[in-house]
Design a protein around this nucleic acid. Structure first.
Lengths: 340, 340
DNA sequence: CTGAAAGCGCTTACAG
DNA sequence: CTGAAAGCGCTTACAG
């Protein structure tokens, strides 16, 4: 009942394991007859090569690891979709792991992946990343590493990102151009780079349009949830702040805000405009449909894998690889929560 | 730059590889001094055990594979969340693969996983499954297999499901109890078991309430998409069918229907009630919020992994394992698209 | 308490 | 064209 091995085939055919191996791998120095016999026998015995043995011998596992905060966010599931597809196309399998937004967990997972001798690692960082020491360990161990979406600027590895600052600048500008002046920003936590960048893009847009920045219009999400969006919108309403627009760090938060505004009977966009970020699936189907920034998750996953393979291939050939950063284009999807 | 091996440590300490291995694994027949020296040296040399070698030797990879139709569906991402978490808790890593609803792809992926010598496989089947021959191969090879959600009834392996027929019966009954009589069913493709079961539950509910079954009220989704929901709702409206409720195979389809009804100015639930299935995240946030059947994805993932480990552990001990089927409870989440 | 030896299932440089 | 041998990095039964 144990799987057939090369040895089993060799014995059956009364030839050496070496020859069986070579025949199966299509080496030219095997006679046609032998090759045919081997293939026939392998088929008959249902031979399936033991990857573990191959991996040990070739020092490649043809497996990569991906660590993301959580798979249940639509954006990340799209990224993973892209990753799996691109990896598989290249004969690689992918192990998915979730950091649950914790660096501590991240460290543990990296260790697991390194023990597993994956050929490369893909990561989108946890929000509480205050260090990148654990990333340095990966880089120092010469394991190809590509960061995407939530990255650490100081780490010396390849990255795939969007221009968060620019995208956020454009989103805010759209609001301004449609007449909004008192624009609240529901920002993300203080650490993550993309949360910072989106905040900065927002401020820059204000500045370039001579709109005074008002700190009291900044709301900071700790967990970037629907509930927080709801809560902050409620606060704005109940405290009678003269806000005419909300720019949320992500669609989930924007949808929470919309839920409150709808409930409170506040007209969108007539009284308050709303713009989100990421273009989650639900954003197109809620009411009113949400104007948002399209963030190309699927493409980001594919690009990250491609970069990773570039690096893996270089290092296989012993060539030094110069880390690259790819910036993906975003665009605004205009729907019904803003005047366009 | 290559990772440290046991041999490296042994040489440094002038002892045998055997002893290093035993010390690291906490065997009792190693002196305290030696053990301490080994640990210190391992730490210093940044030793990380090579799982590939361990796997080859122990004939276990501590890795399982999961094949699902697609990760980007919220339900599946919840299942995967549960799978990864439960697996990790038990020291297992998981390789995720997508069948894209194709049996052909499924076969290919199974082969990959078998070559990889994963310790077990978790699957939710592609919609076009007309055969379970490829599953039989897995079972015959004695690789623990657990099917979930979309299963093949005839396969002799463990399963984790919900009672689709009953859940669907209850959903339809809710519609009937709230006064609906002309209930359209947007069903799934003809092959998948859960699509069949939901259809049968719908019919049974009609029958038990003496409502005549009308074939013209059955719409069959090929791909189970938003667009199909939208299209069928439109058809119903444009053909002036006297329909007072829609029961959709899944929330995505229901949301499509709602989108059309909203657009056409048809009042929900006053003119047409809508009920979905699965409780996708968006269902709570669309307008009106969708009444639906809660399908416990996260729990399903966890349970499937637990069952798989039961089987893996039995087979490690050489005990025969009798496949089990776990039926998870569902409940109806009443929101605003139905009268309750 | 320590270690030599065998072996997991492959691949590949080398000899013939 | 074929095959013996070494080796990838471990674990473990066995001997001392």
């Amino acid at each position: 009942m144990k799987p057939t091995t090369l040895k089993d085939i060799a014995i059956k055919l009364n030839i050496s394991v070496t020859t069986v191996s070579k025949a199966l791998k299509g080496y030219s120095d095997v006679s046609k007859t032998t090759r045919a016999a081997v293939f026939e026998q392998a088929e008959k015995m249902n031979y399936s090569p033991n990857s573990v043995a191959v991996n040990l011998r070739t020092r490649q596992t043809k497996t990569i690891g991906a660590i993301i905060p959580t798979i249940t966010h639509h954006f990340f599931s799209k990224v993973i979709d892209g990753i799996i597809e691109e990896a598989e196309k290249n004969g690689y399998l992918v192990i998915i792991l979730q950091s649950e937004e914790s660096v501590k967990q991240e460290k543990k997972l990296i260790k697991l992946l390194m023990n597993k001798r994956v050929d490369g690692i893909l990561m989108s960082l946890a929000a509480d990343n205050d260090t990148s020491k654990h990333l340095k360990k990966v880089i120092d161990a010469k394991i190809p590493l590509v960061l995407f979406d939530k990255i650490s600027k100081i780490s010396n590895c390849s990255k795939v990102v969007i221009n968060d600052r620019e995208a956020s600048y454009n989103a805010t500008t759209l609001l301004i151009n449609s007449g909004c002046r008192r624009i609240a920003h529901f920002r993300g936590p203080l650490n993550p780079q993309n949360s910072i960048d989106r905040y900065l893009g927002y401020r820059k847009a204000l500045e370039d349009n001579n709109i005074e920045f008002d700190r009291s219009l900044i709301y900071t999400c700790k967990n970037v949830t629907f509930e927080e969006g709801y809560k902050f919108a409620k606060e704005i309403h109940e405290q009678n702040k003269d806000v005419d627009a909300i720019f949320a760090i992500t669609d989930l938060v924007a949808v929470g805000a919309i839920a409150y505004l709808n409930k409170a009977g506040i007209k969108i966009p007539d009284e308050i405009s709303v713009i989100g970020f990421s273009n989650w699936f639900m954003s197109a189907v809620i009411s009113p449909p949400l104007t948002t920034v399209e963030q190309p998750g699927y493409k980001m996953g594919k690009k990250a894998v491609k970069l990773l393979f570039e690096e893996i291939n270089s290092s296989n050939k012993g060539i030094d690889f110069e880390p690259k950063t790819i910036v993906l284009k975003t665009k605004i999807i205009k729907r019904k929560t803003t005047f366009s």
